[in-house]
Amino acid sequence: MTRRPKLACRACHGAVLQHAAPERLIKGGLPTERLVTHVIDAKYHWHLPLYRQAQMLATHRIAIDRSTLAFWVGYAAQELKPLWHRLRQLLLASSKLCVDETPAPVLDPGRGRTKTGYFWALSRDDRPWAGPDPPGVVYAYAPGRGAVHGLRLLEGYRGIIHCDGYQAYKTMTRETRADALSGTLAFCWAHLRRQFVKIEREAAPAPAPVAREALERIAQLYAVEKALRGRSDAERRAGRQVHARPLATALKQWFEAKLDHLAQKSDTAKALRYALRHWDGLTLYLDDGRIEMDTNAVERAMRPIKLNAKNSLLPVATRAPRIGQFWLR
């Protein structure tokens, strides 16, 4: 409720004054900033799609259409855009960033189905080495996952880019694009490890000795990281040189030896070639205490995006365009 007191002077004739109405986020609109904030918080923090929020409001006899809620969210996003630009500017000043992208279904009006868009994320989390900068993450939507979209988000960055082995990241850092981006790629051990986990799972109940030993050797590297977590970057680098580098050197030699005895088209051989092809980026963390072994920090930051997409899938009984066996609103 907005209170606008009227004031009058008994000694004056017809002199009545009233406080001006306060400015609102949506000029001439009914929603207050608190209401719009509540809608945004429910959508992005608690992962409640707008159609569910409209249904919840309807139970309180408040009839607000989903399209109206979407308009509020879009209006608020424009007001928050300068804050997004400032946060991105702060993150691009970091010495190291994690980057990742994930698909997201996007409504495609008029076609009766969805198209695939992508959310990109830049993440900084220096807490594992007690860095001075606070953690932060910036999200951006793009219609694809090609290098052109990553360059737009990372334009001008000159630090270490921690990512998976996706080809677009390599394209982004080629010399031909040095005017737009000049960064060093550090690759993710978790992505390599998942390949061996998949091989072992698909081989069960039959044994997969190469995949099993690879996982055990990678676990030894992670055990070193666990012992060094929370220490300074200099301490982490020194500890890695003493304990992790010999393990990594032995692991590379083991990969090369095993590759010669495997069918070259097998999944295990492909995983070994992936490791050897990205070896410099995988072992870059040994020489820099600021770099993590994996990109789990940015993958954790992506979870809200996946939860939002999952919660937007409705039972078949809902009236909406059909997408496979679900309905998307």
Results as ranks from 00 to 15, higher is better:
Arg3Phe: 03
Cys9Leu: 06
Cys9Trp: 07
Arg10His: 13
His13Cys: 03
Val16Ala: 06
Val16Met: 07
Leu17Asp: 14
Ala20His: 07
Arg24Thr: 14
Leu30Asn: 03
Pro31Cys: 05
Thr32Gly: 14
Glu33Arg: 09
Arg34Met: 05
Val36Asn: 05
Val36His: 06
Thr37Met: 04
Thr37Ser: 06
Thr37Val: 10
His38Phe: 01
Val39Tyr: 03
Asp41Cys: 11
His47Leu: 04
Leu50Arg: 12
Arg52Tyr: 03
Ile62Asn: 02
Asp65Met: 00
Arg66Ile: 05
Thr68Met: 03
Thr68Trp: 01
Trp72Ala: 02
Gly74Glu: 08
Ala77Gly: 10
Glu79Lys: 07
Leu83Tyr: 04
Trp84Tyr: 11
Arg86Val: 02
Leu90Met: 13
Ala93Phe: 06
Ser95Trp: 02
Lys96Leu: 14
Cys98Tyr: 14
Glu101Lys: 08
Pro103Glu: 09
Val106Cys: 10
Leu107Gln: 15
Arg111Asp: 06
Thr114Lys: 11
Thr116Asn: 12
Gly117Lys: 13
Leu122Arg: 04
Asp125Asn: 15
Ala130Leu: 15
Gly136Ser: 00
Val137Met: 05
Val137Asp: 15
Tyr139Gly: 07
Ala140Ser: 15
Leu151Cys: 10
Leu153Cys: 14
Leu154Thr: 08
Glu155Ser: 11
Glu155Trp: 13
Gly156Ala: 08
Arg158Trp: 04
Gly159Met: 02
Ile161Asn: 11
His162Arg: 09
His162Asn: 11
Gln167Lys: 14
Ala168Ser: 15
Lys170Asn: 15
Leu181Arg: 10
Leu185Thr: 12
Cys188Val: 12
Trp189Asp: 13
Leu192Gln: 07
Ile199Cys: 00
Glu200Arg: 11
Arg201Asp: 06
Ala203Asn: 09
Ala208Trp: 00
Arg212Asn: 03
Ala214Leu: 02
Glu216Gln: 03
Ile218Met: 10
Ile218Tyr: 02
Ala219Asp: 08
Leu221His: 05
Ala227Gly: 13
Ala227Met: 15
Gly230Ile: 12
Ser232Leu: 09
Glu235Cys: 07
Arg236Ser: 10
Arg236Cys: 13
Ala238Ile: 05
Arg240Glu: 15
Trp254Pro: 06
Ala257Trp: 10
Leu259Asp: 00
Leu259Gly: 02
Asp260Trp: 12
Ser266Ala: 08
Asp267Pro: 00
Ala271Val: 01
Leu272Phe: 03
Arg273Ile: 02
Arg273Tyr: 00
Leu276Ile: 07
Arg277Gln: 12
His278Gly: 07
Tyr285Phe: 10
Leu286Asp: 01
Ile291Ser: 04
Asp294Lys: 10
Glu299Trp: 05
Met302Lys: 06
Leu307Tyr: 09
Ala309His: 12
Lys310Glu: 03
Leu314Ile: 01
Ala317Tyr: 01
Gln325His: 05
